[in-house]
Amino acid sequence: MLLSQEPMVRMGAFAGVFLAMALWEILAPRREWQIGKGYRWLNNLGVVVLDAVIVRLLFPAAAVGTALFVETQGWGLLRLLDVPYWLMIVIAVVVLDFAIWAQHVFFHAVPALWRLHRMHHADLDFDVTTGLRFHPVEILLSMFIKAGVIVMLGAPALAVLLFEVLLNATSMFNHGNVRLPGRIDRVLRWIVVTPEMHRVHHSWYPNETNSNFGFNLPWWDRIFGTYRAQPRDGHTGMTIGINLFRDPRDLRLDRMLWQPFHGPTHSYPINARSRDDKSIPDREADRDL
C-alpha cells in the first residue's frame, strides 16, 4: 500500500519537512540573510520544479520503480544473503547512503562534475531551499548512479522509498538556517548530519568546501577523514558560497542553469591548488573568464 502511494508519500514528507524548517528559520534563524528570501526562494524552488519534471519525464518509475523491477527479477547481492527482510532494509539504506556520500565526493573531485555541482554551492545564503537546488544534469547523473547501486545491491523497494524520503528530509534539515543549542548539536551530529555540521561544507574556503560531505548519516566523513567540526570564521562570520558567481544576479534561474558552462573551476576541485594558498580562494583569479 505504501509503495503504491509513493508519489504522495514523498510529496507529503517533503511538504511537512519544508514547512517545519521554514517556520523554524523564521522563529530561530542562525544567521542573518544576505539576500532577500523572496528572490532566492523563487529561483531555488524553480530549480526544484524543473528537476522534478525532468526526472518524471525521463525516469517515470524513478528509484522506487527500479527497485520494484529488481525485486521481480530476483537480482542483487542482498538476495544471496540469508537475512531477515528488516535487516535487508537496514543494509540497503546504509549502503545507499554511503553511495550518495561517495558520489558527492566524486562530484567535488572531478572538475567537469564540479562544474555541475557548484551550482548548489553558488547560493549566497544557506537555508532550507539551498538543500534543494541542484542542476538538472547532476540530478539525472545521480539517478543513474542510484539506479546502478539499487540493481547491484538488489535493494528492496521499501528500503529505497525510505531512503529517498530520509535523504530529502535530512537535506532540508541540514541546510536549515536554524539555531540549534550546542549541547543538542554535539549529540545529534553523531546520529545525523546537522545544520552546524553541514554549513561548514558551504564555506567559501576550498578546504572547508571539501569537508563534511554527508547528507544523512554523519559517519562516513569521520571514517574517511573529511570531517571538520567548525568553520574557521565561525558560523555567523563565515562567507557562504564560492568565489565565483557572487553577483546576486547569478541567483536567477536562467543564470544558474548556465553556470556549468561558464567560468573556471580554479581551486575548488579536490587536490587543486590556488596560486597562493590552497585554502584561501583568489577572488581576482576566479572572476568570470
Rank of each mutant, 00 (worst) to 15 (best):
I150V: 15
R183F: 12
P195L: 15
L116D: 06
Q73E: 12
L81A: 14
R56K: 13
A92R: 12
G263V: 09
L162Q: 13
H117F: 04
A157K: 11
H202K: 06
S274T: 09
L87I: 00
M172G: 10
D51F: 10
L251C: 13
H117C: 15
P136T: 06
I35C: 07
Y205I: 05
F134G: 00
V110T: 15
G225E: 03
G263C: 03
M88G: 13
R273H: 10
A92E: 10
H121D: 04
N177E: 15
F245H: 04
H202E: 05
M11R: 14
V110K: 06
V151Q: 01
V64A: 11
R189D: 08
P269R: 00
L162H: 15
P269N: 02
T194N: 03
W258D: 07
L42T: 15
H108I: 08
F144I: 04
S267V: 11
I270R: 01
R40E: 02
D125K: 14
L42V: 14
G234Q: 09
I270D: 10
Q230M: 03
R199A: 15
V200F: 01
D276I: 13
A229N: 10
N168E: 10
I145M: 09
R186V: 03
H104N: 01
Y268I: 12
P181Q: 02
V178Y: 14
V94I: 00
R10S: 00
R249Y: 10
F245Q: 04
M11L: 13
A67C: 13
G65R: 05
A157Q: 07
L132P: 00
W24Q: 05
L217M: 09
V200T: 06
H201T: 00
L166T: 05
V192K: 02
P60E: 04
V17D: 03
W219T: 07
I150P: 02
F126C: 02
R40N: 01
I145P: 03
L27H: 12
V149T: 08
R30W: 12
R222P: 14
R199E: 08
G241P: 08
G225M: 11
S142N: 08
M1N: 08
P281R: 07
I223G: 00
G74H: 13
L78P: 06
F69Q: 09
V49A: 10
W41D: 05
Q34M: 11
T72L: 09
T194E: 06
N43V: 12
T239V: 11
D82T: 13
L188K: 12
P260K: 09
Q259S: 11
V9I: 14
A63T: 06
L2K: 07
R252F: 13
L113R: 01
L96I: 09
L289V: 07
T194F: 06
R255V: 05
L251Q: 14
G76H: 00
D286C: 11
M143V: 14
R255K: 09
Q5N: 12
P248H: 05
F224Q: 07
T72S: 14
A159G: 12
